[in-house]
Write a protein that binds this DNA or RNA. Structure first.
Lengths: 210, 210
DNA sequence: ACACTAAAAGAACGACCGGTCGGTCTTATT
DNA sequence: AATAAGACCGACCGGTCGTTCTTTTAGTGT
């Protein structure tokens, strides 16, 4: 198995550009981001970007997919090491808040920002964001359902309702923390922890305080 | 008391322009909004806008203040007709969700969108948004505190924690409803109603179902 | 009728936008 | 050694951005 050095170089560039695009997009918006700024921030030429993506929209779609890869790496995968059930649901929320609090991205949450930016802008970018959002909610629902099936959450729990609440508390955290007070992270942890403990058949599975 | 027709005309124009700016900003973003688009949508000239605001930033600030007036008119004031206490807190949330569900604005919630757009953009616009956000949270805290003092909410309720949860559930509703499913409004109502009923000394003050 | 004032339009500006083009350099194929 | 392919650049395109300057229009007071 030989590696084509040209292709490898291109792949490396694409990764670097997309990571830069994610960072810049959290600050300027996914659409507000200009190719000139991006190229300048990365020390490449604007036209060089078009060698890898044929339009700004294509670059936006690639950026979204790359951001999801990062999200899976830093949030989803670590959470999946927790045992199935209520502990995994808690881990998912806990990891998300931790990811925000680490401030790995300069402008908060890529998806939260993009979802609010594009929820009223028809087009393929909005559609892709909606699709990934649906997948994310399905993940939450699945993990919650497992907790119910394992008997760790009360059988009358509405997983859609619970999923909405967990998502809402998590989504708000970054913005609230950045615009008003970092205490938001504490509130976000406690809100979900208290809720899950209240719905648990064995609260001992969860930590006592956030 | 005589009215100068010229000034009255100017004031009317300002109101019309700001209302248009609010609507357009929910779709294109408060910064993404261009003066050309705004002028065209209103059937006025771009330069005419500068007769009333000296820069785009000034217009953005005026738009924010006008949006807050609308928010007070449609959400806060109606909610304040409810009796002090837990019913008023519920009314505040209920009115907010209703305002979203009415789809009075074409692009969702002006403040939610703007807060996510500007939370990483230093400047006077961000500062003004943060200030209004703080005031809004203070209103929630005050109404919740009244409910505790009246004995309608359990005395050990942390109003900051509760306020965060109410705000999170409300903030998420529009985006979730628009991007994924209008059921979000139902979840948003039930989440807060269940929470308030659970913390109430007399759940009979609140409706039984959302 | 006239001067005065505020509102609004028109034309133009430099800067920047997304995007195209011809070309160079590097690497792989034959 | 010749050829092809991919990565990347500088120059440039038409168009739009926020902003300014000049002019016209509409309404007020004498």
């Amino acid at each position: 198995m030989t590696v084509d050095g040209r292709m490898a170089r291109g792949a490396r560039t694409r990764r670097v550009v997309l990571d830069g695009a994610i960072r810049l997009a959290t600050e300027e918006g996914l659409d507000g981001l200009s190719l000139g700024h991006l190229a300048e921030a990365l020390g490449v030429s604007k036209s060089g970007l078009f060698a890898h993506w044929r339009s700004k929209e294509e670059l936006q779609l690639a950026t979204i997919d790359r951001a999801m890869e990062q999200w899976v790496t830093h949030v989803v995968s670590p959470a999946l090491t927790a045992p199935r059930g209520v502990r995994r649901l808690w881990a998912l929320h806990e990891r998300r808040i931790a990811f925000y609090a680490e401030e790995r991205l300069p402008g908060g949450c890529f998806f939260a920002n993009a979802d609010f930016e594009f929820n009223a802008r028809p087009g393929v970018v909005r559609d892709r964001l909606a699709e990934l959002f649906a997948q994310w909610m399905q993940l939450i629902h699945r993990v919650a359902t497992e907790a119910v099936e394992l008997g760790e959450l009360r059988p009358d729990v509405d997983v859609r309702q619970l999923g909405y609440e967990v998502e809402a508390v998590g989504l708000t955290a970054v913005m609230h923390a950045r615009l008003l007070s970092p205490e938001a992270y504490t509130y976000a942890r406690r809100a979900v922890l208290d809720r899950l403990r209240a719905l648990s058949s064995d609260p001992g599975l969860l930590p006592t305080a956030a």
